[in-house]
Design a protein around this nucleic acid. Structure first.
Length: 466
RNA sequence: UCCCCAGUAGCUCAGUUGGUUAGAGCGGUGGACUGUUAAUCCAUGUGUCGUUGGUUCGAAUCCAACCUGGGGAGCCA
């Protein structure tokens, strides 16, 4: 028995007349009075399903083949043939159809062969992988992940697995998920009546990570070029189409680099992965362009063909002030840009991803490197039309005295950052990096408008089913 | 978490100025036709009208709270 992926049969990798077996799930069945049934079978190896032509001579034609419904799991053995019909070059002339699993009640099988809303499909996270759209998203997502690793590997970066569990509450409580083995119905207490975390698994409070950046900086300070690619957790009560409680983030960190170096890196990386997805997943991208977002393919091509626009925060403020538009939130140097401002810049003013740089230091994190002007820090955001912030990055403050100054200003505990400060005490170097939200990248590439539909099992407030 | 909108058949929705029997398309099923392919044509069933409470002679319809989803905002990636 020669098993074949649908992809390989459709690509013509088998001789005409050759006998192969494909295994997968029925998408549709159409019976012809000519005494044959057309059964479309998909196995996830590519966007298209293969058409199996089952003649009524088959032993189980009336008992099984004609009873096949969407979702049934089958194996079709047959000879590879040029298709007599339109729509595909190759098909399978079936000599045997084996049914692995029936759909027990076709009337209530949730994945009917018809259009479903994304919201509906989300309720069936275990069955939606069988749909065209979820399958295409899954393959594009995989392609992007592979391309990201490949890009960094080819450019001399090492992948660092930073910890998922952390004991430092780096960015302030409230947004972290607690990790504990304590019995919540019977918490051990200290003399003061507080929860006694010394009895907890790690002997202190522990949380799920909100970023691998601080950890990966240590590796950049030894291996020069590194990156993380892993899950990240935010317990914020964010109910939007672009936030998840559990998402994947890519964070390169580069020693001896400044902000412009990592801005260039971000541009190179995005172009690299866009090219990869257009080359490797043309079938899925064509589907997105046809059914999800007309611009899906041309948008990527446009980004690939053009240089990113760089813009200083200060210049962006001037543009927003003078653009003639009235915003709900007033624009003034020193304020954080609102969504409406970022949208205007990325979608209307530039019409492509734009890199904003050098933000006021008072609205940015403690670790960002202070610029000479004493007012701004070397931070950047890459804003993508339709998505908003897809990348946030900065040069890191490598000068201990200036880092300590920021820690004091923001009232952060030195003890928590002792090892981070050590990096500045022992052979410190200028370095920079950024964080790329992987799901936002997938959403941007596919044109999917809700981030919950580009991750296999979305976790968001009040939602952790499956 | 805040603002706005929505929740009616398996799905997508229409409907209701409160009043006897609740509608369409798609899907499913049966049939016709067909090398078909989002097939087409005919027939066909299905409803705690989101939940709880209130107003009323009477609520799917009005009111309140809650739940869920969507759009926007904040937080950010």
């Amino acid at each position: 028995m020669q098993y074949a992926a649908v992809k390989d049969v459709l690509a013509g990798q088998f001789e005409l007349g050759e006998t192969v077996t494909v295994r997968g799930w029925v998408r549709t069945r159409r019976d012809s009075k000519a005494g044959i049934s057309f059964v479309n079978v998909h196995d996830g190896s590519c966007f298209d399903a293969i058409q199996a032509v089952a003649p009524n001579e088959l032993d189980n034609y009336s008992s099984e083949v004609q009873k096949l419904t969407t979702g049934c799991a089958i194996a079709v053995t047959g000879t590879v043939a040029e298709s007599a019909g339109q729509g595909q070059d190759f098909e399978l002339q079936a000599t045997k159809v084996h049914v692995y699993g029936w759909v027990e009640d076709p009337d209530t099988y949730p994945m009917a062969p018809k259009r479903h809303s994304m919201e509906y499909l989300r309720e069936f996270a275990h069955l939606r992988p069988r749909t065209n759209v979820a399958g295409a998203v899954t393959r594009v997502r995989h392609c992007l992940a592979q391309a990201v690793h490949r890009f960094f590997h080819e450019h001399g970066y090492y992948w660092i697995s930073t910890p998922i569990i952390t004991t430092s509450d780096a960015e302030g409580a409230g947004e972290l998920f607690r990790v504990s083995t304590l019995d919540m119905a019977n918490l051990p207490l200290t003399d003061k009546g507080d929860v006694d975390y010394s009895q907890d698994f790690f002997g202190k409070e522990a949380f799920l990570t909100v970023s691998g950046q601080l950890n990966v900086e240590a590796f950049a300070s030894a291996l020069s070029k590194v990156y993380t690619f892993g899950p990240t957790f935010r317990a914020e009560n964010s109910n939007t189409s672009r936030h998840l409680a559990e998402f994947w983030m890519i964070e390169p960190e580069v020693a001896f680099a400044d902000l412009d170096d990592v801005a260039k890196l971000a541009e190179d990386m995005l172009k690299y992965v866009f090219k990869a997805v257009l080359a490797e997943r043309a079938d899925d991208m064509a589907f997105f362009a046809e059914r999800i977002d007309k611009e899906a393919v041309t948008r990527l091509q446009h980004v690939i063909d053009n240089d990113f626009v760089h813009m200083d925060y200060t210049d962006a403020i001037e543009i927003l002030k003078n653009c003639g538009k009235t915003f709900d939130y007033p624009v003034e140097w020193g304020v954080d840009l609102q969504s409406e401002h970022e949208r205007y810049l990325a979608e209307e003013h530039v019409g492509a991803p734009v890199i904003l740089k050098n933000y006021p230091r008072d609205i940015k994190a403690f670790y960002m490197r202070q610029n000479e002007d004493g007012k701004t820090v070397a931070a950047m955001d890459v804003l993508a039309p339709g998505i908003g912030e897809i990348i946030g990055g900065s040069a890191r403050e490598e000068r201990l005295d200036l880092l300590d100054q920021r820690l004091r200003e923001m009232d952060l505990p030195f003890e928590e950052y002792s090892w981070y400060r050590d990096l500045r005490r022992y052979g410190t170097v200028p370095h920079a990096g950024f964080g790329l939200g992987f799901e936002r990248l997938v959403a941007y590439v596919t044109g999917m408008t809700n981030i919950r539909d580009v991750i296999p099992y979305p976790r968001s407030p009040k939602n952790a089913e499956f």
